[in-house]
Design a protein around this nucleic acid. Sequence first.
DNA 1: TTGTAGGCGTTATCAG
DNA 2: CTGATAACGCCTACAA
Lengths: 361, 361
Amino acid sequence: MRTTIVDVARDAGVSSTTVSHVLNGTRHVAEPTRQRVLAAVERLHYEVNSLAQSLKSDRSQTIGLLITDISNPFFTALVRGIEDVANDAGYSVMLCNTDENPDKELTYLRMLRRKSVDAILMAPTGVRQPVVDQLVGLGFPLVCFDRLPPGAACDSVLVDNVSGAQGAVSHIIRHGHRRVAVVTGLLGVGTTDERLEGYIRAMAEHGLPVDPELVRRGNSCLAGGYREMQALLDLPDPPTAVFSTNNLMTLGVLGALQARSVHVPDAMAVVGFDDFEWAAVLRPRLTVVAQPTYEIGETAARMLLDRIEGRGGSEPRRIVLPTRLTVRESCGAAGPDHSAEREDVFGRPPMHVADVPLSAR
Amino acid sequence: MRTTIVDVARDAGVSSTTVSHVLNGTRHVAEPTRQRVLAAVERLHYEVNSLAQSLKSDRSQTIGLLITDISNPFFTALVRGIEDVANDAGYSVMLCNTDENPDKELTYLRMLRRKSVDAILMAPTGVRQPVVDQLVGLGFPLVCFDRLPPGAACDSVLVDNVSGAQGAVSHIIRHGHRRVAVVTGLLGVGTTDERLEGYIRAMAEHGLPVDPELVRRGNSCLAGGYREMQALLDLPDPPTAVFSTNNLMTLGVLGALQARSVHVPDAMAVVGFDDFEWAAVLRPRLTVVAQPTYEIGETAARMLLDRIEGRGGSEPRRIVLPTRLTVRESCGAAGPDHSAEREDVFGRPPMHVADVPLSAR
DNA sequence: TTGTAGGCGTTATCAG
DNA sequence: CTGATAACGCCTACAA
C-alpha cells in the first residue's frame, strides 16, 4: 500500500541504506546516485514513516500538551507561544483538552506515554496523578504551567497570583470601596487558592473584614460568574465592587450586571483576572490583572526543550512571571487608557524572572 | 530503558505471546497465568508502545486536525465536537493550527502523513495543495469543513453561507437601511466569497446598488475589522449599517464604533457572522448569523469515521448545515430576546441536511 | 493452554 | 563509495 524506502531503493536501483543516507545527509553519496534516488523519491511521492523512525531511534519529536479548557483564550494564546517554540525546534505538538476533568487527564497522560511523546507540557487539574509523580521521578521531561500539580515536585512556569490579586483588590479599596466581593474559580486548583489568598491579604492590609457572604465559588466558567453575581446582588447588603478571578467568570459577572441593569462602575466596580484581546470592545472597558500569556507558553516550552536536552540540572526549576494591573474604566478609576498606547498587552517589558528551587506546596 | 512486553513476559515467566493475548483479550489464557501477567504489568508500570503497534498494524488510531485559527472561538467550539466523536470511537486527535498560512498547512500535512495518521480533518486555507488532491485521489480518508479546498473534490461539511449572509443583509434592509456596508474576510477563502455573494444578492433583491466603497476587505482579523470600520466612518457619505462576515472582525468593528462614539444601533446598525458564547455580554447585544459550530465538528468527525471504515461510497459527500439569524438589539430591531430563552444557541432544532454530490467549484 | 518465529519500515554497524 | 544485516517492540500465523 504505502511506499517505503525499499520501493524507492528498487526504483533507483540502489540499496535502502543508500536511500536513507541520501535523505538524511548522513554520509557522502556519489552525485549521480544521489540524483537517481531523489528522482525516485519524487516520482513515488515517498515520505518517511516516522513510526518506524521513532521505533528505531526511541525519539518521536513530539511533545504532548495538556490544557484544561480550549475555549479559554488564556490557554489558546499560551498554546501559540508553545507551538512557536516547539516547531522551531523541530517538535510537533499533540494538543489535548482535559476540560478540568481528572479522568480525561489520566486517559490522555496514558495515551501520550503509549504514543512515546518525548516530553509533556501540562496545566494540571487539581487532582494528584500518580503517573505524573512517576514520570517526574523517572526524570521524564515534564513541565507544568499555570498551576502546580498537587504533590509532584516538577518544573513549572507560573505567575505571581497572590500579589497580582492583592494588587487588584488594593486598587479597588483605594478607590473607596469597603464591601468588596470575590468570585473564585474551581476548588482545589492552585490558582484559585492563590488569588483568593491575594484578596484576603489585601482586605487585611487595609483593615477590612472578610465577609464570608462576599466570597463566592464561580467554578471558572461563564455561567458560574453569572450565577454568583446574581447571588451577590440579591444579598441584603450587596457589595459595591467585585473581583473575579478568571476571564470567563468575569464575562459572566458582566452579563449578570447588565441583565439587572446595574451600572458599571457607578453602582458596581469590576476587576477581573486575565486580559484578552476582546476586552477592548467591552463597555465599560475592563480593569484586569493581565498575565503574559504568550510568554508563559514560550518560557514553558523553552524549559521543556532544556530538559529534553538534559540541561537544567536535577533540581525542579520554577519560573514565576509577573502580572500587570491594567486599569480601565470598569473600576471607576479611569485613568488615562494606557492599553491604547501599546501594540500588545505587554509591550517589551523587562521580564522579571524569579528562579527559585521548588519547595513542597 | 523503557519496559517492553518482553520484560513483562520474563517477569511473569511466560512468553511475550501470552502477554500480548492477555492484554488484548485475543485468546483464552488460563486464569492463574493471566493473573501473573497482570501483576507483572502492574509491577513494571507497563504501557504498550503504540508506535510498534501501529507499525505492525498500519493503523495509528490517530486523526490529524488542521484549523486555521486557534484563537477563533468558532474553531475551538468545533474542535470540541470533533474530539468528542473521535475519542468515543477510540481515536486521538492531533490538532494543528495553520494560522491561515499555506506553508504551515503544507508542512503539517506532510508531518501528518509521516506520522501515519489514519485520517485527516481540515479547514483548508485558500490555496490549492496538490498533496490534498493526491490524498483524496488515493482514497485516503479526508474531510474538509467550514470551507472547500480549491480544486479538490473531497468530502465536506459546510454551512449555507450565501443564504445566511443574504438573510442577514435582507434583515438590515427591511429595517430601512439603504447604505449597507460589508466587511469581508481573507481573499480567496470560499466563505469570504460566499458571504459577499449573499450580500450582493440581498442588495439586488431589494433593488439597491452595490457601492464599491462600501465593500471592504477586513482579512478575517480583529484589527482588520477595526481598520475598515474606521475607513467607512471617514467616507463622505458613510453607511448606516454594516455586515461583518466573521466574528473577530465584528469585534473590531464594534471597537472602532466605540472609539469614535458612534452609537449602535441608532447611528449604525451592526450584524455579524458567527455567534459566540460571549456575545451576550456585549452591549448592545449583537445580531448575528449563528452557525451550528459544535454540530459541524460532530458531523465532520462522523463522516470521517464512515470513510475510515470504508463506508460512504466512492463519490465525494457534502453536507450543508443551516445557519440561523439571531436577532438582537444591535440591528435596531430588538425584538424579544430569543437567545435568553434557550440553553444553547441551537436548542434541539431539526437538522436540515442537504446531501448532494460535489461539483467542481 | 502456551510458545516460536517472521515481519512491519527504519537506521546503525559492519563489511566490501 | 555502496550494501547486507540486525534490531527497535509488537502481533499473529503456525506449531506443539
